[in-house]
Structures are given as C-alpha cells and as structure tokens.
Design a binder for these strands. Sequence first.
DNA 1: TGTCATTCTGAACGCCTGTTCAGGATGGCC
DNA 2: GGCCATCCTGAACAGGCGTTCAGAATGACA
Lengths: 208, 208
Amino acid sequence: MSTPTSLGAKAPAARRQRIMDAAVQVLKDKGFAGTRVADIASAAGTSPALVVYHFGTLDGVLAAALASVEDAFYDDLAESVPQDTGAVQRLRLLGELGSDTEGTRDWSLWMEIWVRALRDDQIQELRRALDGRWRETVRATIDLGVTEGAFTCSDPASAATRLAALMDGLGVQVALGDPSVPAERMASLWLECAAAELGLDPALLLGP
Amino acid sequence: MSTPTSLGAKAPAARRQRIMDAAVQVLKDKGFAGTRVADIASAAGTSPALVVYHFGTLDGVLAAALASVEDAFYDDLAESVPQDTGAVQRLRLLGELGSDTEGTRDWSLWMEIWVRALRDDQIQELRRALDGRWRETVRATIDLGVTEGAFTCSDPASAATRLAALMDGLGVQVALGDPSVPAERMASLWLECAAAELGLDPALLLGP
DNA sequence: TGTCATTCTGAACGCCTGTTCAGGATGGCC
DNA sequence: GGCCATCCTGAACAGGCGTTCAGAATGACA
C-alpha cells in the first residue's frame, strides 16, 4: 500500500501534483510578480521547504506548473475541435473555446505569460509554441472551409493571423472587465469578424 | 537665474522631470516587476534617496511617470489625426499610429499596464481612460466614414470594438517578436481587416 | 526488528530592496 | 554676511522572501 498510515506523507507523486496545481492557481490569482513560495505551499497544504525540495527553486515550480498548463491546453484543443466536423461548425467551436472557462481568470494567465515572455526566453518559447498551435488550428479551419467552398478568402495566412490576434485582444478586454466586451459577447464579436473575413453570412455562425 | 553655480542642484523641477522620464524608460526596459528605485535613480543620474524625496514612494514615482505617459498619449492622438481629413485617410493614420514608435518597446509598456491593471485599481482606471479614448477615436472615424458614404457598416460600435481589440492583439505579437506579425506588416494587417469590416476596397487603404 | 533511502519539516541564514534619518550643500532674502 | 527653507546625499535600518540545513518521520526491504 502507498496510502499513509496515520498523518504521514501522501504518495510523493500526488504531493508533487498538488503543488503544481496549487502553483497554477496562485499564478492565476496573483500573477508572477505576486507569487511567493509560501503561497504555493499553503495552497498545496504543505511547507515552503517541501516545495523547494521537490522542485529545487521557485522558478522550477513555475516551470513545471506551466508545462502542465501547456499539456492541458493541447488536450483542450484536441478535445474541443473534433476532426469529423465541417469548417463552419469548427469555427464556432473555436470561438467558444476562446471565451469559455470563466473567461477572466484564464486570460489573465495568458497575459502574465506574455509579459514574462518579454524577458524570459524559456517562457517565450512556451508562448510561441502555444500560440503557434492555436494559429495553426485557426489556419487549418480556414483552409478546410475554403476547400469545402464554404469560405471565401484570398489570403488565409493573414486571415488566421488576424483572427488569432483579435482573440487575444478581446481576451484582454474580458480579463480586464472592460464594459466594451462583456464576456458573453466575446465569442459573437469574434465570429462576426470571422464572417466578414471569410465572406460568410454572419447568421450562419451565430445562429443555433 | 535658476542655473546651478558649480556642481550644485539643477533646477528641482527639471530634476523631477528627469526622474519621471527615467522611470518611464526603466519601466519599458524592465517592466513593473523589475523596476527598482535604484534603477530609476541611476538612470536619472541621482541617488535613490532623492527619488523618494520627491515622490515619497516607489509607487509614487511610477504613478507620476504613467501620468506623463497618459499626457503624451493624448498629445500623440490629437496631433496624428487632424480634424480636417477624410475618413479613409484618418483610418490610415490610425493604423500607422498603432505601429509606429519602435513598435516593440511601446507595446511592451501597454502590456505591463494591462497586467498591473489586473490587481491595481488606479492603473485599471488609467488603462480604461486610455483605451476608451482610443476606441472612441476609432469609432468617430467609422461614423465619419459612414456619413461620408465611404464606409458601409451595420454595427459601428462592434466594429470599433473589434478593430481596437485587433490592434491590441497585433501589438502583443509585435512586442513579442512573433514572426507571424513582423512590425512592418502590422499596419497593413490592421487596415486589411478594417477594409473587410467597413466594406472598403483594400487597395484604397493600402495604396499610396 | 534493524537498516537505509526517501520524504518531509521548522528554524535559521543571508540577500535584496524600499524607506528613513541625520546632516551637508545651495540659494534666496534681509 | 547671516539666516532659513529647500534640495540633496551616504549610510544605516528593517522587513520580506528564497533558500539551506540538520534532523525527524516514513516506508521498503531483508
């Protein structure tokens, strides 16, 4: 058995996982600048010393935590956009994907990552991978729609770049609680722009 | 005369200004998280004690520095978009305005402000004012174009929101040096989207 | 049950940094 | 020249925080 006998240690691997999860949580709440080892430890229900025992250093925990975020992101993307769907429906799913999961909390994490990436090469690499993957997904959807004859687009690469950037910009507004972009309007704002970019009837994207 | 006799103090007001300018510079270079009183002092050519003598606290300097940034922003906006210009030309100027001034450095400052605004109400207020002003300018330009008959737009408010958000998103890519948005492509990417949003011939916006 | 590697903890260490403070320099004013 | 408010500085202080460390608890294994 690997279960504790009384108050002893939980399985070390589980403990590690709890710490990484706690780190993600604290990161979302307080950002890079406000995240202390003690915060992570208390959120994980342990001592600061254990955190550094497992991960060596604060940066180490954060790196591990962000790696887990990366995995979750890829999973989300793969799950949410099934292969056997038409381009129009896929586009709709992408719009929802960008605006789901409580909105503000998650976008604030992306913003933190952006700012950190300005001065941290490792984070920069992470961001580029995530962003590239997202843009590729948009791009593939556009190409599919063009092939299907559903979309009209003379420059798919630029359109994908613009739609990806627009999502980021809208995410910023949502994260900051700007009244100009209520969270529930985000998806439709994005899809309306997509409709204009792809020569589509907006009703097709927004309707049921 | 207010000039120093030998090595004595420069006019205090000038010193204050130098410190605020230095603070903006350091903020752009190192971000909020990396900005130390000592950095500002040395960039301004003085001692940390003087910085705090004039502004009371680190947050005080930063607040003053950002206030000066706000003023500069309004001036830029007023200067760059003259009143006696057609909507098409104005749109072009807006596109250039968003992508000028060394690009990366300035957008990185906005990003810093966004992240700070997540947890600092005063910065939040500043950002909202700046962003609102920018969006209003876009909105006014769209309205003008519609009145002129140059633009076709069924929902100017949403279009303005989207175009403002797109600019932010493109700015992020530029600041992060993402190859998908080279700095020199930023304006054209934005204008192409504007053309699609406003039922305009892209050549009209992109041509000379 | 005895031994040993692994896991965990509280306390202490040491660095960084914002801020304070006591006092020196400066310049205006009588 | 003498006085005073303003401006400025180096040095010291104090708190926060990442990290280290010595040793306790735990569990696997024989």
